[in-house]
């Protein structure tokens, strides 16, 4: 019941947010001079008028707004202005799984690398491992992912020739971008894990556990990890937002046909409908992911109340 009201409330706020984003972006995009119909050649007025009529651009702006809003409510983002063979829904449907695959793999990298090094650091506190991992973590956080990507391309693509330079459609093509995407978050997660573990490992009950004669491995993995999980899960929300943004630039560097590429290109080419469709999708995605994270958080920590 509590979960249900929580979800309903969240849903309500999501609608409000999406509506605000829709309205702001709608009016912004319509302010921009430079219609969508520019080819190498100039269109005659008659042709331009016909095209504008076809895309409903000749109606008064208030009417356009409401038609567009109603279509959006029905999840119909209309035709893409620039890619004449596709509707926005088709473009997003093609781009989303690609970005999702990249994002998930990046996240898995971030969590697995981050937590492993965090645990090692916590267990071997103040050792050389600890210092070097924490240094690496800060590096990962500090260096922008596009600089990292350039570095890794030079090393792994040109020098070691382990991975292809760019593209999509093969396992080897996804590893490098996913790693670059996950790196900063691996850094954060490593630090959070370390702190969380140290806090837990300093508690009385851990000492009791040791006293009971449990092996250090059991203690660390069973109790320590649980303590580390809380801050990590609560960090997943911002991390997901960061992964979404990071994929914008990485998809561009590695020529990956995901949502990020479509969004940037749409914004550059003023593909009104596509850009707005992508923006709204991002908004909803962010909301849903945050809600999931909150749910997960309430599951692992009984003290947390959903509200």
């Amino acid at each position: 019941m509590q979960v249900l009201t929580f979800l309903l409330k969240r849903f309500g706020w999501m609608i409000v947010t999406v509506w605000i984003v829709f309205t702001v972006s709608f009016f912004l995009m319509r302010q921009i001079p430079g219609g969508p119909f520019n080819g190498e050649r100039v269109l005659s007025e008659a042709v331009r008028a016909r095209l504008e009529a076809r895309y409903n651009l000749d109606a008064p702006i208030s009417e356009q707004y409401f038609t567009h809003l109603w279509n959006t409510v029905q999840l119909d983002f209309g035709p893409s202005f620039k890619m004449q063979d596709f509707t926005v829904n088709e473009v997003l449907a093609q781009g989303f799984p690609v970005s999702a695959a990249l994002g998930i793999l990046g996240m898995v990298f971030a969590i697995s690398i981050g937590m492993t090094s965090g645990i090692v650091s916590a267990v071997r506190r103040n050792s050389a491992y600890d210092y070097s991992f924490m240094l690496l973590a800060t590096l990962g956080i500090a260096i922008p992912n596009f600089v990292l990507a350039a570095l890794l391309i030079v090393v792994f693509v040109f020098n070691l020739q382990m991975f292809p330079a760019a593209g999509w459609g093969d396992i080897s093509q996804i590893i490098l971008p996913a790693f670059c995407l996950g790196a900063p978050f691996a850094g954060y997660i490593a630090r959070l894990t370390r702190t969380g573990m140290l806090e837990v490992l300093g508690n009385d009950y851990i000492r009791t556990a040791y006293a009971k004669g449990l092996s250090p491995r059991t203690v660390v993995l069973k109790h320590g990890l649980r303590g580390a999980l809380l801050p990590v899960v609560s960090y997943l929300g911002p991390a997901i937002a960061g992964i979404l943004t990071g994929s914008l630039v990485l998809e561009r560097i590695f020529v990956i046909p995901g949502m990020g590429s479509h969004f940037i290109e749409a914004a550059i080419q003023r593909d009104y409908t596509l850009a707005m469709g992508a923006l709204l999708t991002y908004t909803v995605l962010l909301f849903v992911m945050n809600t999931l994270v909150d749910l997960a958080y309430s599951i692992i920590d009984p003290r947390v109340q959903l509200e």
Binding site: P97, V98, A100, A101, L102, I104, L105, M107, V108, I111, S112, W168, G169, D170, I171, I174, L225, R226, L229, A296, I299, I300, P302
Partner: peptide
Amino acid sequence: VRLLRKYFPFLLILIAGLSVVWAVNLGT
């Protein structure tokens, strides 16, 4: 919920594993 709580880390790993398989198999 308690059951879920207990196995949450494993669930997380499972989800992650499945998504990786899905992601990697995507459209080759």
